[in-house]
């Protein structure tokens, strides 16, 4: 038996919003420690990893490990039927071929349940090594979204260049060149408005705008986003899911052939 109840159901709605453009189907791996998902986009350029810890749920029961393969477009359609303040429960029997989503209004006066077929997905799992990144940049998630959106007008790629002074995002194309520089904030009233840089060495890497734009669909999840970079390894774009987990996107850099 698997059952996970989340009073803050809108977190789950937001997680789905942040995945559905990148992935069409994926497996949710459930264990007594929580729920995890790891999947690559169709072209195998990027990887998404989601963690929802058991202690972040209001009720969590997972008697035996199970992998629930789901069509994320269908899951997203179902979660869109939940109101933002609904309590969401996900339930499945052991070795079941379907999953049930229960949405309760906060006053318990409306209860809806939706059943969805599970899929057998044969998915590759990649081992992500622990890495000490050369540069770790934290900035407001909405600012990052805006920068990527603005620079996507100029070209297909964004160059992210990090030094001690700050971080520079650049794009070039037929209409011209765009550069956006963010300095580390000296002092801010609100922590979520800060730009902070932890740097071991300067790094400059080039990434495809198309994917960065899809990653920023997770902006609704968290006030801040963390970018971790090292020379010639994938960028990590991380959004926290409340205090229960994270969505991490990994994107391979563009490298000289």
């Amino acid at each position: 038996m698997f059952e996970a109840r989340l009073v803050q159901g809108n977190l789950l709605k937001k997680v789905l919003e942040s995945l559905k453009d990148l992935l069409t189907e994926a497996s949710w791996d459930c264990a007594d420690t929580g729920i995890q998902l790891q999947a690559m986009d169709n072209s195998h350029v990027s990887l998404v990893s989601v963690q929802l810890r058991a202690d972040g749920f209001d009720k969590f029961r997972c008697d035996r490990q199970l992998s629930m393969g789901m069509n994320l477009t269908s899951m997203s359609k179902i979660l869109r039927c939940a109101a933002n303040d609904d309590i969401i429960t996900i339930k499945a029997q052991d070795q079941a071929d379907n999953v049930t989503f229960v949405f309760e209004s906060p006053n318990q006066e409306k209860v809806a349940d939706y059943e969805m077929k599970l899929m057998n997905l044969d998915q590759e799992h990649l081992g992500i090594p622990e890495t000490d990144y050369a540069a770790v940049i934290k900035l407001p998630a909405a600012e990052f979204q805006r920068i990527i959106k603005d620079l996507s007008q100029f070209g297909e790629s964004v160059v992210i260049s990090c030094t001690k002074e700050g971080v520079k995002f650049s794009a070039a194309g037929d209409i011209g060149v765009g550069n956006i520089k963010l300095a580390q904030t000296a002092s801010v009233d609100k922590e979520e408005e800060a730009v902070t840089i932890e740097m071991q060495e300067p790094v400059t890497l080039t990434f495809a705008c198309r994917y960065l734009n899809m990653f920023t669909k997770a902006t609704c999840l968290a006030p801040q986003v963390t970018l971790s970079m090292s020379p010639e390894v994938p960028l990590v774009v991380e959004y926290k899911i409340g205090d229960m987990g994270h969505v991490r996107y990994y994107l391979a850099p563009k490298i000289e052939d």
Partner: peptide
């Protein structure tokens, strides 16, 4: 010219 590498080139299969 810069080329997009697949993520599978950076992470090993488990």
């Amino acid at each position: 010219e810069q080329a997009q590498k697949p993520i599978t080139q950076f992470f090993s299969q488990q």
